[in-house]
C-alpha cells in the first residue's frame, strides 16, 4: 500500500497539470535548471559541515558523550543500545541510516530496540546539516533558538519513542 502513495502523488501532479493545460516538459526542465544552480550554491556548505561532522565523529567525542549521558537516558527508559544513535542522528543522515542498519542486523527487524530506533529516525532530522543548508542563501548567521529547540525535540523523540513503542507492541 505505502509503495503507491508517492507514485500516486506524482501522477496526480501530472494529471492536474494536463487538465490545466500546463506545458509539463517545459516546466520540468525549468525546475531542473534551478536545481543545478541550487546544488552549486549549497555544495560548499555541505562539504564544510561534513568535514566538521566527520572529524567530530572520528574523534570519539560522540561516544564519550553517549557514555557520559547513559545514566540520564536509563532513567528516562531509553534503551542503552540507542544512545550512540541518538547522538549521531542530528549530525548525519547517511551516518545514522548506516547505524540504523547495524541496529537492525544486531537486534532483528521486529525487535523493540529496532522499532524505537525507527521511530527516532522517522521523527527527527539532521538538525546541524539543515541549519546550514536552509540558511545558505542568506547572510543570516544568528539562528537564535532554532538549534536548541530542534535538539530538544530530537531528544524527546527518543523519550516518547521508547514509551509509545512499548505501549503499542
Amino acid at each position: 500500500m505505502t509503495v503507491f502513495i508517492i507514485p500516486i502523488f506524482i501522477l496526480f501532479i501530472f494529471v492536474y497539470a494536463l487538465y490545466k493545460g500546463t506545458n509539463t516538459y517545459q516546466s520540468f526542465v525549468k525546475g531542473a535548471k534551478s536545481a543545478v544552480r541550487l546544488t552549486i550554491d549549497i555544495l560548499p556548505f555541505i562539504a564544510t559541515i561534513l568535514i566538521a561532522i566527520q572529524l567530530f565523529a572520528a574523534s570519539g567525542l560522540l561516544d564519550l558523550l553517549a557514555v557520559a549521558t547513559q545514566p540520564v537516558f536509563n532513567l528516562l527508559g531509553i534503551p542503552p543500545e540507542l544512545t550512540p544513535f541518538i547522538f549521531l542522528r542530528p549530525f548525519t543522515g547517511a551516518g545514522s541510516i548506516s547505524l540504523f542498519n547495524e541496529i537492525v542486523l544486531a537486534h532483528g527487524p521486529d525487535s523493540y530496540i529496532t522499532r524505537v530506533a525507527a521511530v527516532i529516525a522517522g521523527s527527527s532530522e539532521t538538525v546541524f546539516y539543515i541549519s546550514v543548508v536552509y540558511f545558505s542563501k542568506t547572510k543570516i548567521k544568528k539562528l537564535g533558538w532554532a538549534i536548541p529547540i530542534a535538539l530538544f525535540c530530537t531528544f524527546l523523540t527518543a523519550v516518547f519513542g521508547a514509551l509509545v513503542v512499548r505501549w503499542l507492541m
Binding site: I10, I13, F14, Y16, A17, K20, T22, N23, T24, S27, F28, V29, K30, G31, A32, S34, A35, V36, L38, T39
Partner: peptide, 14 residues
C-alpha cells in the same frame, strides 16, 4: 533535486 524541483515546477505552473 532535479527530479523533485522539476515536479514542483509543474505543480507551481499548474
Amino acid at each position: 533535486f532535479i527530479f523533485w524541483m522539476g515536479l514542483l515546477e509543474i505543480a507551481k505552473d499548474s
